[in-house]
Design a protein around this nucleic acid. Structure first.
Length: 609
DNA sequence: CGTGTTTGACCCGCGC
DNA sequence: GCGCGGGTCAAACACG
């Protein structure tokens, strides 16, 4: 409020509530009065008291008949004053606070502290200025007046005490407010601390589960492969041509590198240059012989993969190492319709390069995760040459930091695909995927949602979110074979394998309190089978529910409702043995994902803006 | 001034 | 050995 001018609304409301010095005229008068710097302080106080008293009386509706003489007027004022005394006492506290506030707002020089308030209140209790000293003091009026004075004196003490008490209360309230704010901040800090501790603990858990799972899937793959070879060797030789491409390439590469290891030599030759760029060491990376750089694209070539596979073939003891290394090399490509230059995945990226890729007029942008110093995760963003509205984002690497909840959707989605790909590709002890089991996984193509690139130098799974009819139906370009993801995605498997997987996946699970927690529970409750086994007999309920949640969150414009639905679906379908819930969740996931691509675009657009 | 982007140069593997 | 293509670096530049 501007100085010396009050709005009509404020004047009315203030008058209605306090009745003192709050009407427009009163404010102006008061301002004029207090602005008279020539007057002495005593004179000013008296004027203020008089002014306050007058305004209080009139403002409270105490009509002083103008046709009465001074004595009668004084009596009327005294009676009216008695009547409003109680009311006044109730309002004195409000008046203090309000007057203080107003004085601060209006920058009025007077009645700014409690002391002045007391003075003014004392003035208020004094006889009105209209009382004539010549009045007969023996009259009852004078007695009344004296009583009034007496009560005024008493009230002055009580008011003084109340003023002090009000001031103290105000101070206490302010202190309480500050204390509450401090406590709020402290709780926030505690919450973040607990969250970080939780993520750290879960990281350990995931690592442990992953180690445990690796041993299990090794045995499972052995059994499955033996079975598959016996059953399908005769008649499925031509039924899985696409998977064969991957296997054969891997096999031939492995055989080639078995004879000699030029790839390793070439990699070693290049490693000095690339090693300088790698910032974050990885435990698994230390085990990766010959490649000093985890994320180096140079190491992500066929020679690298084949070399690893050949090493795996030669030394089954290194199966886990090779699996980890290959998993780290896995890429997940997400196709989504977006007008924005980059889809929003919740992470922070820094562009470090741009290239014109062959066969695509659109440039390919290279981004590096900047959410943590030295995070090795990178991604490539490029528009589809055929459809410019489709944005192809390829993720690679492992985050070395927790991910924000906003990054969970994309991370969990892609993690599932990558885990599926990687676990099925190199988890068998002979270093090659058994085509038979893959062919079985391919059978339900209607539910397939990803393509795995066999031509790429490193395994790449593509998640296509651009299909209107069935977004879970992933593209099947030549040299790609589809893998049916039970329940579209297998986040739980990703959780189990989060350590060796591209971290965009594992960390996602680590970082999301609710979802990851459910993941963990799932991981606890059942030993997560490899994807193909999950597909055959043990669907991944949690995978379904999480993917459903992810899709729901990504697709539903009403985020709250979507989140609630997603959590509900997770809770309802998270039971490890509840296959019905799994199917339901898968259906929900399908439905949710079906409409997700458009929202991905809008979401990314929003974040871009 | 710090941070992010742009862009030409460079490195490397691979195919011929 | 050379050229091509993919990927990265880093200086210059832009921006808040």
């Amino acid at each position: 409020m501007e100085r010396g001018s009050g709005s009509a609304f404020e004047s009315e409301s203030s008058t209605r509530f306090f009745g003192i010095n709050q009407n427009k005229l009163g404010m102006n008068s008061f301002h004029r009065l207090t602005s008279q710097g020539k007057n002495s302080s005593m004179d000013r106080e008296q004027r203020i008291c008089s002014f306050v008293n007058d305004n209080k009386m009139t403002a409270r509706g105490i009509e002083v008949p103008v046709n009465l003489n001074r004595r009668e007027q004084a009596a009327a004022v005294a009676v009216g004053k008695e009547e409003v005394m109680e009311e006044e006492d109730d309002r004195v506290l409000d008046f203090f606070s309000e007057n203080k506030k107003r004085s601060r707002d209006d920058r009025l020089p007077a009645v700014d502290d409690g002391h002045d308030h007391v003075k003014k209140e004392n003035c208020d209790r004094q006889p009105p200025p209209i009382s004539d000293p010549d009045v007969n003091t023996g009259l009852h009026l004078m007695t009344t007046n004296s009583k009034s004075d007496q009560s005024t004196v008493d009230d002055s003490f009580s008011s003084d005490a109340e003023a002090t008490r009000a001031k103290n209360e105000l101070t206490i309230l302010q202190a309480e407010l500050q204390r509450m704010n401090a406590e709020n901040q402290r709780l926030k800090g505690m919450l973040s601390q607990v969250s970080s501790s939780y993520t750290a603990l879960q990281m350990h858990l995931v690592t442990y589960m992953q180690q445990k799972h690796k041993a299990e899937i090794t045995q499972d793959h052995e059994v499955v492969q033996v079975k598959s070879d016996q059953e399908n060797e005769k008649h499925e030789r031509h039924d899985h041509r696409l998977p064969r491409q991957f296997f054969d390439s891997a096999r031939s590469a492995g055989e080639a590198t078995e004879k000699n290891e030029p790839s390793q030599t070439s990699l070693d030759k290049r490693s000095p240059r690339t090693h300088k760029n790698e910032i974050v060491p990885h435990d698994d990376e230390k085990n990766t012989k010959g490649t000093g750089r985890e994320e180096s694209p140079d190491s992500e070539n066929q020679g690298w993969v084949s070399n690893k596979i050949s090493k795996l073939n030669n030394n089954p003891k290194d199966a886990n190492q090779v699996t980890d290394a290959t998993m780290r090399k896995a890429r997940v490509s997400v196709r989504a319709r977006s007008e924005a230059p980059m889809i929003s995945d919740g992470c922070q990226w820094r562009k470090y390069g741009q290239k014109m890729a062959k066969g695509n007029p659109c440039p390919r942008a290279y981004y590096r995760c900047t959410m943590a110093v030295g995070c090795p995760v990178r991604k490539q963003v490029q528009r589809c040459a055929d459809d410019r509205s489709i944005l192809i984002t390829t993720y690679e690497g492992n985050h070395n930091h927790p991910l924000p909840p906003a990054a969970m959707a994309m991370a969990t989605t892609t993690s599932s695909a990558a885990s599926m790909l990687l676990s099925g590709s190199v988890s068998s002890t002979d270093g090659m995927i058994n085509p038979s089991f893959l062919s079985r996984t391919i059978l339900p193509c209607s539910s397939s949602m990803a393509t795995i690139s066999a031509s790429a130098p490193f395994p790449t799974v593509t998640l296509d979110l651009t299909h209107q009819q069935n977004p879970l139906q992933f593209q099947r370009p030549p040299a790609h074979f589809q893998v049916a993801f039970p329940g579209q995605l297998a986040p739980n498997f990703a959780a189990v394998n989060s350590a060796p997987l591209p971290q965009i996946f594992g960390q996602a699970l680590i970082n999301q309190p609710k979802l990851s927690g459910l993941h963990s529970s799932q991981d606890h409750s059942q030993s997560t089978p490899p994807p193909h086994l999950m597909h055959q007999s043990q669907p991944a309920p949690f995978a379904d529910t999480l993917s459903a949640a992810t899709a729901a969150i990504a697709s539903d414009p009403n985020f709250t409702a979507a989140l609630a639905a997603a959590i509900s679906s997770i809770i309802g379908g998270a039971h490890p043995n509840n296959n019905h819930n799994v199917a339901a969740a898968a259906n929900n996931s399908t439905a949710a994902t079906r409409s997700s691509h458009g929202n991905v675009c809008s979401n990314s657009s929003m974040q871009q803006q």
